[in-house]
C-alpha cells in the first residue's frame, strides 16, 4: 500500500458530504457536478446564476487552500491525447447515465437511491477493470 491516508481522506470526505448536505438544505438541490455543469450547457436560463457560482467555487478552491497551506502534490500521469479521450467518455457517460461520482456516488448513495447504487457499482467495476487492463495487461 502506497501513501495510505485514512485520516485526511475521512476529513476531506466529510467536507464533501457537508457541502452536499448544505446545498440540499439551503438550495434544495443535489450537488452533482456533471448535473450542474450539464444543466448549464443544456439551458442557459434563470438557473444560470447558482450553477456558475457553484462551479466557480469549485474552480477557485485551490486558491483558497493555497492561502492557508501548501497545495498537496498532484500527479496527472495521462498524456494530453489520453486526457481528451477520457474527458469525452466522462462527459458523455455522466450525462447519459444522469450522474457522476458526486451525484450518484455521494448524494445518491446517501439517500439509498436504487438508480445511484446501480450506477455506482457499474462505474466502479468498469473503472477497476480499466485500470487492470491498462496497467497490468497492456502496460505491464
Amino acid at each position: 500500500m502506497d501513501g495510505f491516508t485514512p485520516v485526511s481522506a475521512l476529513i476531506g470526505g466529510a467536507m464533501i458530504g457537508t457541502s452536499a448536505a448544505l446545498f440540499l438544505i439551503l438550495n434544495g438541490r443535489i450537488a452533482g457536478i456533471s448535473g450542474i455543469l450539464g444543466g448549464l450547457l443544456a439551458s442557459p436560463s434563470r438557473e444560470t446564476g447558482w450553477r456558475v457560482a457553484f462551479l466557480a467555487g469549485l474552480v477557485l478552491a485551490p486558491l483558497a487552500y493555497g492561502l492557508v497551506a501548501r497545495l498537496p502534490a498532484v500527479t496527472v500521469g495521462a498524456s494530453l491525447p489520453l486526457l481528451a479521450v477520457a474527458g469525452l467518455l466522462v462527459g458523455f457517460g455522466s450525462r447519459l447515465g444522469s450522474g457522476c461520482t458526486s451525484g450518484h456516488g455521494v448524494c445518491g448513495l446517501g439517500r439509498l437511491s436504487p438508480r445511484s447504487m446501480a450506477a455506482t457499482v457499474t462505474f466502479m467495476t468498469v473503472a477497476i477493470l480499466t485500470v487492470l487492463v491498462t496497467r497490468h495487461l497492456i502496460g505491464a
Binding site: 469525452l88 467518455l89 455522466s94 447515465g97 457499474t122 485500470v131
Partner: peptide, 23 residues
C-alpha cells in the same frame, strides 16, 4: 443509466479524473 455509468467508468479509469476534480 447503466450504459452511461459504464462509459463514465471507462473514462474515469483511463485518466483517474472525474468532473469535480477536473474542474
Amino acid at each position: 443509466l447503466v450504459a452511461g455509468a459504464a462509459i463514465f467508468g471507462l473514462g474515469w479509469g483511463l485518466a483517474g479524473l472525474c468532473p469535480g476534480p477536473a474542474l
